[in-house]
Structure formats: C-alpha cells, structure tokens
C-alpha cells in the first residue's frame, strides 16, 4: 500500500490519507477484509500524529469503506463497487454542471470546453 503525503498542498493530512485509501478501495487495489495497519503504526510510518491517522480511519469507517474489529484492528469493508463508482460519477456530474453554468454565463462554447478538457488532461498526464 502506498500513500503519498504532501505537507504543502493545504489539504489536511487526514483527508489526504482518507482519500488515498478510499481510492485504493474503490479501484479494488485494497480487497475486502484486507487488514489495514494500526493507527499507531501508520502514524509512525507516515511521520504524522496518531490523531491524524485516527481521524482518517474514523471518517473512512463512517463512510462505510472500512470496519473496525475491537481489539483487532481495521479491515477493508465489503463495498458494492458499482455503487461506489456511481457515487463518484454523481460527484463528477455535479462538478461538470457547475463548470457548465459558468460557461453559460460567459458564453463559452461546448467545443471550447472539450478542448479545455483535452488540454488539462494532457497537462496532467505529462
């Protein structure tokens, strides 16, 4: 399991941990019942505080991605991958319609938007 923390991104560290573990669960990289490292071990290995990793795990548990087994630790929950993907698609839809609203106000054409997406995509991949 790889997690990369940025100290300068401005995104809270617990959120970075949460998002990255969540992504790994959704893509299936972390299978159901996979045992996650303890909050103390993860904190040590990521050089962050125990409260940070605890927060990340608690939020993941609240969102149903992991489950805690008392006195044992945290395990990846069995999630419906279809449903999880659906959820992400809805999130994207919302963001895109937000963008389209702005486009409409400033009279930016769909072609221009599609070009923009291609450019951003290329930039991100290089």
């Amino acid at each position: 399991m790889e997690i990369i923390i940025s100290n300068s991104s401005g995104v809270p560290i617990y959120e970075q941990i949460k998002d990255q573990i969540k992504a790994k669960i959704i893509t299936g990289e972390l299978a159901a019942n996979f045992m996650l490292p303890s909050i103390r071990l993860l904190a040590k290995d990521l050089h962050c505080s125990v409260i940070t990793t605890k927060n990340a795990y608690e939020e993941l548990e609240k969102e149903g991605f992991i489950k805690s087994v008392p006195a044992k630790g945290f395990y990846v929950a069995r999630i419906n991958q279809e449903l999880a993907k659906e959820e992400q698609l809805t999130k994207m839809e919302n963001l895109i319609s937000e963008a389209l609203k702005i486009a409409k106000i400033h009279q930016i054409s769909i072609t221009e938007i599609k070009e923009m997406i291609d450019i951003i995509n290329e930039e991100n991949e290089s």
Binding site: P12, I13, H47, C48, I51
Partner: peptide, 26 residues
C-alpha cells in the same frame, strides 16, 4: 507539526492555547 497530537502553548506563565495539533493546522 509532524508528530504531536496535542499542542499546549504557554505565554508569560499562562496557558493561552491547548488543542489538538490537527485542529490548529487544519
């Protein structure tokens, strides 16, 4: 900032802040 769970801040003999480090940084 990396390892502390809590930060307690003393100034002129008085505690002026005691909170989790995440609360402060986030």
């Amino acid at each position: 900032e990396h390892i502390a769970d809590y930060i307690t801040f003393i100034n002129k003999g008085q505690i002026i802040l005691s909170a989790t480090c995440d609360e402060i940084l986030n």
